[in-house]
């Protein structure tokens, strides 16, 4: 089966979720990846959405983190202060997914502004849960499309720290921390190293053991495509 760049991103991120892992999930690609993992190799993984739904099992992918179906299918629904205090700060989350507008070589993320803070060229939505997720979960997974605008030498604003970023899954490959900075460890099928370097705003190091991502299997793609997003035609 043929597949898109977004699909290989979702599949590769899903593969890294261990069965039983408790995952703090945002909307979009992370939600797709976590739901795919739950429907394939990780049926016991627990999806936690910051709206307060713990153990959500949506039939359709939600458009927002607070869609009603998340509450209806959850093991527990808690208030937002409880979510951040008892569950995230309480150290009960294994994996946290983050996206951003910009990332640097240390996995620090910007989701606040492009340009100067006081006179921004683009005012982005802001950090939301990211600052405390970044330091409150065991492992941070970043999902971000590869481009020089996103993978930058210097962030315009540091919204969250990269200390716990274990993997960055892009549409071209995978970056993981090696010797103090993110290095390219995987290339998706059909992508060559020059493409990844060209799409990175810093001098991207290639790990000595760069390998090719296993292509998405038919089973993975079928499971992925059975997950439809609300609001899709």
């Amino acid at each position: 089966m043929t597949y898109t760049a977004d699909e290989v991103m979702a599949v590769e991120a899903a593969r890294r979720i261990g069965d039983g892992a408790v995952c703090f999930v945002g909307i979009g690609l992370p939600s797709l990846a976590a739901n795919l993992a739950r429907r394939t190799h990780a049926p016991n993984s627990v999806l936690v959405y910051e709206s307060g739904t713990i153990g959500a099992k949506p039939y359709e992918l939600p458009l927002s983190i607070g869609d009603g179906e998340l509450a209806e299918t959850a093991d527990a629904v808690v208030t937002v202060p409880e979510m951040f205090a008892y569950w995230l700060q309480g150290g009960r989350i294994d994996v946290g997914f983050l996206g951003a507008a910009q990332i640097d070589r240390h996995g620090n993320l910007n989701s606040t502004v492009i340009g100067d803070y006081d006179r921004p060229a683009v005012r982005l939505p802001g950090g939301g849960g990211a600052p405390e997720i970044a330091l409150g979960v065991r492992d941070v997974f970043v999902m971000l499309r590869h481009s020089r605008r996103a993978f930058v030498e210097k962030l315009d604003f540091t919204t969250s720290l990269g200390d716990r970023v274990r993997v960055v899954v892009t549409d071209l490959g995978v970056l993981e921390p090696r010797d103090g900075e993110l290095a390219l460890t995987q290339l998706h099928p059909g992508v060559d190293p020059e493409q990844a370097c060209e799409a990175t705003g810093w001098d991207l190091r290639l790990a000595s053991d760069v390998r090719e991502t296993d292509p998405p299997s038919d089973e993975e793609l079928c499971a992925l495509r059975s997950l439809r997003t609300k609001g899709d035609a």
Partner: peptide, 18 residues
Amino acid sequence: WGGNPGVGSLHRLRDAVE
């Protein structure tokens, strides 16, 4: 967090700030 969940920016908020 000031955005349109699952959609993108809040354009009136952005226009006011920018």
